[in-house]
Design a protein around this nucleic acid. Sequence first.
RNA 1: GGUCCCAUAGCUCAGCAGGAUAGAGCGCAGGAUUCCUAAUCCUGAGGCCGAUGGUUCGAAUCCAUCUGGGAUCACCA
Length: 588
Amino acid sequence: MSDMNLFADFEIRIKNALETIDIVKEKRSEVDFGRITVEPPRDQTHGDVATNAAMVLAKPLGTNPRALADVIAAALRADPDVSEVSVAGPGFINLRLSTGYWQNLLASMIKAGLSYGRSTLGQGRKANVEYVSANPTGPMHVGHCRGAVVGDALANLMEFAGYEVDKEYYINDAGSQIDVLARSAFLRYREALGEDIGQIPEGLYPGDYLVPVGRELAAEYGPRLHNMPEEDWMPIVKDKSIDMMMAMIRDDLLALNVTHDVFFSERALHANGAQRIRQAINDLTFKGHVYKGTLPPPKGQLPEDWEDREQTLFRSTEVGDDIDRPLIKSDGSYTYFAADVAYFKDKYDRGYDEMIYVLGADHGGYVKRLEALARAVSGGSAKLTVLLCQLVKLFRNGEPVKMSKRSGNFVTLREVVDEVGRDAVRFMMLYRKSSEPLDFDFAKVTEQSKDNPVFYVQYAHARTASVFRQAKDAFPDLDFDSLDLVGSTALIDDPNELQLIAKLAEYPRIIEAAAQAQEPHRLAFYLYDLASFFHAHWNKGKEQPELRFVNDKNRQLSIARLGLVHAVACVLKSGLAITGTAAPEEMR
RNA sequence: GGUCCCAUAGCUCAGCAGGAUAGAGCGCAGGAUUCCUAAUCCUGAGGCCGAUGGUUCGAAUCCAUCUGGGAUCACCA
């Protein structure tokens, strides 16, 4: 066993075999092995491993694919772990692996335990995944869920694939909406002092989640703030409001099992006369990306109040953007994007090799300027990617749920988690490609059936635990803590069992592909697939009792099969951990 | 109008750096419970992969154009 990743292992073996072939040796410098793929065949009946090597190399070698495939096939037959080689279709080479190979592979899976599937793909490179980054003006609402889960799972996935990952939250605690927050909280403060504030005026946040902030302020300051001019109480109330809102948001996120390593405050960039923003803009200016000028009016419908004004602009069009972007408004204050320049520069200076922004689809228009920013700041060396999550549509009993943020009438993240459960929310959010819109129906997600894939996968894990419970009953004298599951894998030889091992063998490949493509949904689908294989095999034991995992007449075989069950349990558990959902021992 | 995302079974969606006869779940029709949790499994029907061109040995996949759906577009964060 040279590699835990079966396909990576055989890619090496196949390339080695190619090097031994005469016509390849003759033209070795002209052929590129880069396009050769080694993967599971679409149809299991074709074999265990398939390669397109002959089809890719035939042309440069001046031969036809079938003929070349026959030669390669002959070379591959020398591998003792290969039991059968066939050439099929336009020139595919299909390998069937020996039973012994699978048994050894299973043994190394068991040995690796929960670290089976870990990859060195990332080579320890530092990655920063930024997600959620909601304004601290109120509780998290359901719209934040998807980005939160996708970002969190992606970070977990990349960590497992060998990156050194920081999870980051950018707190949008600067700007006018925070002023609104503070004024709304001040009103609640007056209310807490006994004043009748009547209806919350238009333009302020009406939600009663600010009531505790008012009370806290009243308890801490008494009536003192009341007598101050706004410019004096504003910073105090702002601080308190942001702190309490962020505490609430962290709490909400925790309910979703989402955590961050770094909380980065936008306000910190504006501190000390916006020192850090100024520095960042200076840096950009120094690199020749900043000028003063005017922008053309927006295309399409011209706004009524459009005026041509001179601003300080980022010449982003030179680094791939469609239009130059304002950094300083005509009144001298900084734009939101200016803070983002400083924020990105900070990240870059912290030494990340890869920076990932998980944003909602409504920020799609922001992607190009961020990419342009990365090019300008890093001179093209920084790898910045934006992952756009399409919007989530909520349904209750098939009817769309209407939400209006202004009236304070929105479904909070907390409500969804309380009603549906953390695991179901997380898994559902991952059970769809994130570039695809998602319908989220409360009724379906709470249903504890196959309609809800998380129960299906979790149930498979619970079943593995159940097998061990059964085994303890069947063999009360066995010491399960010190049981050697590695040594008995040679007894595993049923075709269904070997197929299950083959499914487990795909895990490292899935991890790498999902991490590379930054598509955590692939893992969720794989887990479902694996669970399905496991359930199917389990049910075979009904009609064929000799296939059952636990057989009290055959102790050694039972132990061997427990090894297989254990390997399944490990992959389910490790995969579920990456998705951030629990792997229960039982689901009564 | 510009930009971005999307279009695959009746419905909801997968399809892995182009590959073999395009898959799964739900729904529909039938079946399995003296048996380790039936929260499970098995069998079947169901498709011009939105349209048209192009690239090549080969396209659901890549490119162009078009049609249809969604998002976004100013000194708002």
